[in-house]
Amino acid sequence: MNCLEVRQLILADPARLPQEARLHLQQCQRCYGFAEEMNQLNQDLTQAFRVPVPEELSSRILLRHALEGDQPESSPVKRRGWMMALAASLIVSLSISLWLNLNVTEDKPLLAEAILGHMPHEAAIVEQAHNLTHDKRIDQVLAQINATRQGDLGPVVYATVCIIDGMEMAHLAIEEEGVHYTVMLIPTAAFSAPTWFENDRWQGVAASGAGSTVAILTDVQRQRPPAETRQKLSDMAESYQRLLGYNAASAS
């Protein structure tokens, strides 16, 4: 076995060299040194791969399981509950009505529609779950969209980064005075004017400032009178615009 062949074996799996290659190492100082180096690399890799696992990961998985994972796929029993009915009704009758006759271009209602279509993703997790998130998690999520908190974002119960319609955005769920709000923070100005949108389950407003967009949604049914809700959502959108700072996005 020559040096080249031995080195190929070392590069493929330094920890499991065949007998023939090991004999070569006893006679070849340079290949021996190379094998040592690759074994050291393996040890360093072991450390490098061991990124910290988030605290309470198992508990969060089991909590989510308790909330929604109760039916085996093979079971003839259909998954019940409002979530499924909701998902179905959304697919059948996803209709967006713009409440205000604003000057919006074609693609913006599409993004609004995409956000509405995304809502069942959250509903499953958040409906009963509380305190699933903490400041560090929120900051990590915001960092991914190049944003930082400038103040208290309120009682956030869920935070993650979602890609909707090709756009990466922070997806937060807020629980305030028993009312559930969904906040989407988008690091681009996607709407030229405030846009209202709704389907039979959710209503929301999206508004853009300099280089960023906030969309806030809430439940249609157990809500205050429409005018009051709209006012509340507008106020929230405005305050979230103020509460977030965006770094100049280096898109390279």
């Binding site: 998985i61 989510r64 399981h65 929604e68 994972g69 039916q71 085996p72 796929e73 093979s74």
Partner: peptide, 9 residues
Amino acid sequence: FLRAWRFLD
């Protein structure tokens, strides 16, 4: 893990 539960058998 959601999927694993469904196919656990």
